[in-house]
Design a protein around this nucleic acid. Sequence first.
DNA 1: TTGTATGCAAAGCGTTTGCAGTGAT
DNA 2: ATCACTGCAAACGCTTTGCATACAA
Lengths: 122, 122
Amino acid sequence: MERNTRQRKAIQQCLVDAGRPLSPQEILEAAQGAVPGMGLATVYRNIKIMLEAGDIAAVALPGGGDRYEIAGHGHHHHFHCRGCDRVYEVHACPGDMQKLAPDGFQLESHELTLYGLCSQCR
Amino acid sequence: MERNTRQRKAIQQCLVDAGRPLSPQEILEAAQGAVPGMGLATVYRNIKIMLEAGDIAAVALPGGGDRYEIAGHGHHHHFHCRGCDRVYEVHACPGDMQKLAPDGFQLESHELTLYGLCSQCR
DNA sequence: TTGTATGCAAAGCGTTTGCAGTGAT
DNA sequence: ATCACTGCAAACGCTTTGCATACAA
């Protein structure tokens, strides 16, 4: 039976508040505002549980650790700012990719990451 | 002064032969065919040197460690087979992405990764 | 001969796991 | 009162670094 702890609520809340994918470290720092003394292991354990429950989604960025965001935002991509290292959601998509795949390859999904500077860093 | 060791030649050669991005571990195993006893640290050190020299390029895949490929293949993307975990080059591109970026964001580059099954695994 | 490059082993770093104690139910 | 969850610390896998030796120049 799954329990609704202060820690789990804090993690979920800070992901909702952020509105963008957060790294485990970012989650820890944000959630420690609500639950001082929270440990990093707790963040990882809850991420795993929430992933399996489908509450959150992993954003597998090129070049490093995964970030996590609240699930249910539909198909979208990400913009990675090289200034502040933040990741933003991009609710646009070039569309059908099947024609890009080599002949005989079966396309199942795709991920697109844009790089540049966000409006603040520019 | 940069030296042309057997190890470095072996690493470069196996990347050329593979024709697709290899992980450090894959490079080690391939290069040990030419230079038995080669260490993993040597692979990492040469990767770093060759990256800085612009001889190879890092392929920063979502979800884990980087792979490396011979530089100079022009702008391209990658197809990641979930069956054999191999990565293939895709010499096609959806084109202009600027319109996808949020207003006020400055787009500099993009990476596209396709997922699915390669012709062998399908 | 010189000093970069190597192999090994130890150290880092982010993530995962074991364990005894805590707290939601 | 249970037993899932927590914090801590140790373990883990991948990458990097320190050091003495080997070898390309």
